[in-house]
Amino acid sequence: GEEFGGEPIESELVWVLDPIDGTFNYAAGSPMAAILLGLLWRGTPVAGLTWLPFMGQRYVAMDGGPVRDGDTALPPLAPSTLADSIVGIQTFNIDSKGRFPGRFRSAVLSGLSRECSRMRMHGATGVDLAYVGAGVLG
Rank of each mutant, 00 (worst) to 15 (best):
L39Q: 12
T91Q: 15
P8W: 13
D84S: 12
L82M: 12
G5A: 13
W51Y: 13
A47H: 00
I94L: 14
M62V: 11
E115W: 02
W51M: 08
F104D: 03
G22S: 07
G88H: 04
R103T: 07
T50R: 05
Y59P: 04
S96E: 15
P45C: 09
A130Q: 00
I9V: 15
F4Y: 09
G1V: 12
F104I: 00
Y59A: 00
G135F: 06
G65Q: 09
G5Y: 12
L112E: 05
S96D: 15
I94M: 09
A34V: 09
D63G: 06
L77D: 06
W51F: 09
I89C: 15
P8V: 11
G5E: 12
E10W: 15
S110Q: 03
S11H: 14
V136D: 00
S85T: 04
G64K: 09
A28L: 08
P101R: 07
L39W: 05
L36T: 15
R58L: 08
G5S: 11
R42P: 05
E2W: 08
G133H: 00
G22W: 08
P66S: 07
S80L: 14
L109Q: 08
I9M: 13
D18S: 13
L112R: 05
G64R: 07
M32G: 02
L82H: 06
R114L: 06
A28M: 10
P79H: 12
W15D: 13
L82P: 01
E10S: 15
W15F: 15
G65W: 06
R120C: 09
V132M: 02
L13T: 05
V132D: 02
Q57I: 01
E2R: 06
R118A: 09
G22K: 07
V87K: 06
G5P: 07
D128R: 02
P8F: 14
H122T: 09
D84F: 09
A33H: 11
T72S: 01
D71C: 03
L74T: 07
M55Q: 10
A61R: 01
V108Q: 13
G123E: 02
G111N: 08
A47R: 04
P66N: 01
